[in-house]
């Protein structure tokens, strides 16, 4: 049947006619009820880069304490690189980027974006100092500022590692704390998808950038993260009622399916990555790509769920008809 015709009729003839199995619902000329998110690709890119940075900060602190200098260096630089690109994405996505510092005029517990701002403020300096210690040229290390940075690197790295789990997980609340049906309904599961995705990305990064004899913790973190992501991500497809359709269809589905293939492949590859650097690099890259596609897929599902009034009207109407309180 013609979907568009059915929808035009919806404004005037009552129940929208849909093919069998589909939900009947009424709407105003089939128009959206909610506004689409104004965010563009920069926001899912931030979700990925922020998660990568957080997992790298964890690996860096662990590598520092267990004396794995090459893993430590790669992870500290990865944490800084991820954070720097995150900052760029976040500021570039603003409607008025030159006013980014207005975020710092309040601390508002009811706004996950404000909470996230302050989490990043707490997280950033430690990452910066730890990475600076790695980048310092040898001749500067003997002067007093170099010595200071060298001495501060470990406490700074540990401080950022303490905040990193917040960086990896708060972004799930950032998305769920909205009226966007696909994100809001996923609120119980999204934190696990996001931290799993972050761990897989950070582990993958460590596998790519570190020789295999030092990369064991990265391989383990990648495997744990990938399995968590795979399991919890599946739940979005199945357990969210009407809203799961936004995850199971269209571009969101394609992005997340590729994410699943790459993440599963990368997780399997990480088992062989202890023996071969080529296998480590290949599976690390697959995990990074899988994590990024997961973020883009979830973002896209949210956008789709605001475009179609079905995702707003059907669950709410059902609740009203059952006489349930919101």
């Amino acid at each position: 049947m013609s979907r568009s015709l059915g929808r035009v009729a919806a404004g005037d003839t009552g129940r929208e006619q849909r093919s069998p199995g589909e939900e009947d619902f009424r709407s105003y000329y089939g128009r959206r009820v909610l506004k689409e998110p104004v965010w563009e690709w920069l926001v899912p890119a931030y979700l990925f880069a922020g998660g990568l940075s957080a997992a790298c900060a964890e690996l860096a602190a662990g590598a520092d304490l267990t004396r794995r200098p090459r893993l430590r260096k790669a992870a500290r630089l990865g944490a800084l690189g991820g954070l720097a690109t995150s900052m760029y994405f976040l500021i570039a996505d603003l409607g008025r980027p030159e006013r980014f510092h207005h975020m710092l005029r309040v601390a508002k517990p009811s706004s996950p974006m404000s909470v996230g701002t302050w989490i990043l403020v707490a997280y950033g300096p430690g990452v910066g100092v730890a990475a600076a210690a790695e980048l310092l040229p040898a001749r500067l290390r003997r002067r007093w500022p170099g010595k200071l940075i060298g001495a501060l690197a470990r406490p700074a790295g540990l401080a950022s590692a303490a905040v990193a789990p917040g960086v990896a997980s708060y972004t799930a609340v950032l998305l769920s704390h909205t009226a966007v049906p696909a994100w809001n309904e996923a609120r119980d599961r999204l934190p696990f998808v996001f931290t799993g995705s972050a761990a897989a990305a950070g582990g993958g990064f460590g596998m790519v950038c570190t020789p295999v004899d030092e990369a064991e913790p990265a391989r383990k973190l990648a495997a744990v993260g990938a399995v968590t992501e795979l399991v919890t991500s599946r739940q979005l497809d199945e357990r969210l009622g009407v809203v799961s359709e936004a995850y199971r269809t269209g571009k969101a589905h394609r992005l997340r399916q590729w994410s699943e293939y790459l993440t599963a492949g990368g997780a399997l590859g990480s088992l062989l990555a202890g023996r071969s650097r080529a296998a480590a690099v290949t599976s690390g890259l697959a995990l990074l790509a899988g994590s990024a596609l997961q973020r883009f897929g979830i973002f896209e599902a949210g956008v789709q769920s605001t475009k179609d009034p079905k995702y707003v009207v059907v669950p709410q109407r059902r609740r009203v008809d059952r006489g349930e309180q919101a």
Partner: peptide, 17 residues
Amino acid sequence: RAGVAAAAFAAAAVSVF
């Protein structure tokens, strides 16, 4: 829920070492 996920993330990061 984010707190539980963050704690699990931290626990995983420690245990892999």
